[in-house]
Every structure is written in structure tokens, then in C-alpha cells.
Amino acid sequence: MKHRRPFFAFAALAMAAGLAHADTGKLRLTGGVNTIAGSAGGGLTPWAVIGSNATEGEVGFSGYATRAGTRDYGLTGYGVAVGLFDRAELSLARQDFDASPALALNGVAAFGVTPGQHIKMDVVGLKFKVAGDAVLDADSFMPQIAVGIEHKRAHPGSIQSVYNFLGVKNNGTDVYVSATKLFLAQSLLVNATLRSTNANQNGLLGFGSAAPGKNGRSLQPEFSLAYLLRRDLAVGAEYRFKPNNLQALGAAAGLGAGLREDDWKDIFIAWAPSKHFSLTLAYVDLGRIAPGVTQGRRQTGYYLSAQAAF
């Protein structure tokens, strides 16, 4: 329980800071929503924008809760972010992944996975805007550019034995750069992110791999496109390329493509009935996640997230 205390202390401080600066001038939805890792962006990938409604000279706060469900898995997430003067963003997120299908691994080896096992992961993020302004530069070709890091630590419970077999680490750090361009006259937002990572399934299956899998980092692009139907409603899509670190290890262990990792994608709609609240609903396709225990089924389903921002 000790690891929970910093999270709630951070949340309390963030809320206090956000409520102290409730009147802000940022346009609805231009600050994005909270990603599954806590930073501002789409649901799957960060944008260069700084989260919350805070503009220059202000401190803002956002908090979110997310639920995603696919054919075999479920993910619950929640977190907070603080935007500092529209220049920097500090975020903290917790993910709770229902890894029940991993029980099938006990039939492969004596892994000792307990029924109903969940993998939990904490993510601490930091993002800095380094150039441009998505709104003020809307009439030029200059995008807003930001650099960020996400430090992740997984808590796999009884699946630790599987982590040991795969030779993966329980923690790792992603580094990324994002460029976000808002074409205000065309009601269009475009984002491109390049991520350096060695995370498996975003870190839920650890980081790196034993040989002959890929243990080093790789560069993975991510893209988002959003169209504002009106000032409070946007539709869009995301595509996130993923490393495939574990497949070679799985093949060498006689599992074929049982550890293959596929790219993630979604189609979403975001509604902001007020500048302080938004809802996002998406159809997600996460490809195959540990297909060796799910008969190779594609993990398609829904993503629902609610955010409050000040």
C-alpha cells in the first residue's frame, strides 16, 4: 500500500492548484484529453499540447478515469495532470489490467499464475513545450512541439514468474517528441509523435526481452487526426506503431507467434459540454495481445474516458 500514498498526495496538491485557477481561456478540446498514460493528447498517444485549461501565466489541473474492454481483456485507468503556465506538464497515472487469460500459461509450464490476476502499472510523465503554439500559430505552418518522458513501473503479481521467463524488466522509460498542428480555419488537428521505447504492450508485459528477442530500444511513430464538428464535438482516429520485442523469443520457445505484438488503432468521438468536462468514446483495435493464450483473437472493443479540467 505504500506506493499509493504519493499518488493521492499528488492528486490533492494538483486539485488545489487547479481550483485556484478555474477561469482560463483555452478553447474547448484544443488541450486534448488524458491519454491512457496520463499525459494530454488522444486516448492512445500524447500530443504536444499542455493539459488542463491553463494558459500562459496560469496553473491548471485535469483528472480522468478510463475503462477499456476488448474480447479477452479489460483495462481500468485513472490519473491526474498539472499544467504549468502552458509550458510544462506533470502527470501521474495508474493502470489496472485484467490479465485473466494468462491463467492458460499454467498449462504450458509451472508458472503459478493465480486466477483473476491483474497487472498494475504506475506511470509518471513529464512534458515540456519547446516551440510553437497550436492556437496562436494556427495561421502558419509552425506546429507546437513538445518533448516528454514516461517512466513506467509494472506490478505483475503472480505473473512475475512469466516476466522472469521472458527476461523482461518491471520498469522502463519512454522518451518522445510530439508535433501538433491546429488548422483552425479548417477545424482540423494533426499530431505526429516519435517514441523511443522498449516496452511490451505499453509496459504491461514488461520491458525488453531475453535473447533472441529484442532487448534494446526502438523508434515507434504515432499519429492522430481530429476534426472539430463544432466547438464542443470532435471525431478522429489514432494509429500507434508498436515494437514486437517478444515474438522471436516465443518462436524459439516453440510458441510460434504466441507472443506477437501488433499496432494499436482507434476511431473516437470526444464531447465537451463545458470547458471543464469532456467524454471520449472510441472503438479500439489493439491487435493480438499474447495471442498464444487467446487463440490469436484480435482484441477489438471500446474505450470510454471522462475528464475534468480546470
Rank of each mutant, 00 (worst) to 15 (best):
L255G: 08
D266I: 00
M121H: 00
A37P: 01
F10H: 07
G32V: 09
G203P: 01
G167Y: 01
L188N: 01
V82I: 14
G38T: 04
Y239A: 03
A68W: 01
R230K: 14
F85D: 15
Y163G: 02
S274G: 04
R87L: 15
H21M: 11
N164V: 12
T173A: 11
V33P: 00
L184A: 14
N191Q: 10
A192W: 01
Y73M: 09
A16I: 15
F310C: 05
G83A: 11
P221T: 10
G38P: 07
I149P: 00
D72V: 06
G18C: 07
H151F: 06
D98W: 03
L136G: 08
H3E: 15
R195A: 07
L103A: 11
L103P: 00
S39T: 14
G125E: 06
D133C: 02
A199T: 10
D96Y: 01
G256A: 10
A40I: 05
A14F: 05
R4W: 13
D174H: 10
W271G: 06
E58G: 05
A109P: 00
P243G: 10
Q95A: 10
F241G: 01
R240Q: 13
S161K: 11
L249Q: 01
A88P: 00
A54P: 02
I159Q: 05
S178W: 03
A109G: 14
G148V: 01
A20K: 10
D133R: 02
N202W: 07
D174M: 02
N244S: 08
L225Q: 01
M142S: 12
K214W: 06
A290G: 07
D263I: 05
W47E: 10
S91F: 03
V108Y: 11
G250C: 08
V49C: 04
G107L: 12
Q220M: 14
T300L: 04
Y283I: 00
P212V: 11
L84R: 02
F141E: 02
T300F: 02
R153S: 11
A199K: 09
I145K: 00
Q247W: 02
G167T: 10
W264C: 03
L249I: 08
L249G: 03
L279Q: 05
G172L: 08
V162L: 14
A257G: 11
L304G: 15
S218C: 08
I159W: 04
R94M: 06
L103T: 05
G216M: 06
V162S: 02
K2F: 10
V235Q: 06
Y64L: 07
P101C: 08
R231D: 15
A138I: 03
A65E: 06
Q144K: 08
R217T: 12
L279E: 09
S91W: 01
G107P: 00
N245R: 13
K275S: 12
S62C: 08
N198V: 05
V49D: 00
A282G: 06
K127A: 07
G258M: 05
A88T: 09
S196Q: 11
L281E: 10
G77V: 04
T45D: 12
N34G: 13
E238V: 07
N170M: 09
F7M: 12
K242L: 05
R195N: 12
P143L: 03
L27R: 14
F111R: 04
G216L: 07
A88D: 02
A138H: 08
R153M: 09
N170P: 04
D285M: 04
K214S: 13
S305V: 07
G254L: 09
G60D: 09
D86Q: 09
R94Q: 12
G31D: 14
Y73D: 03
R240N: 05
K275M: 03
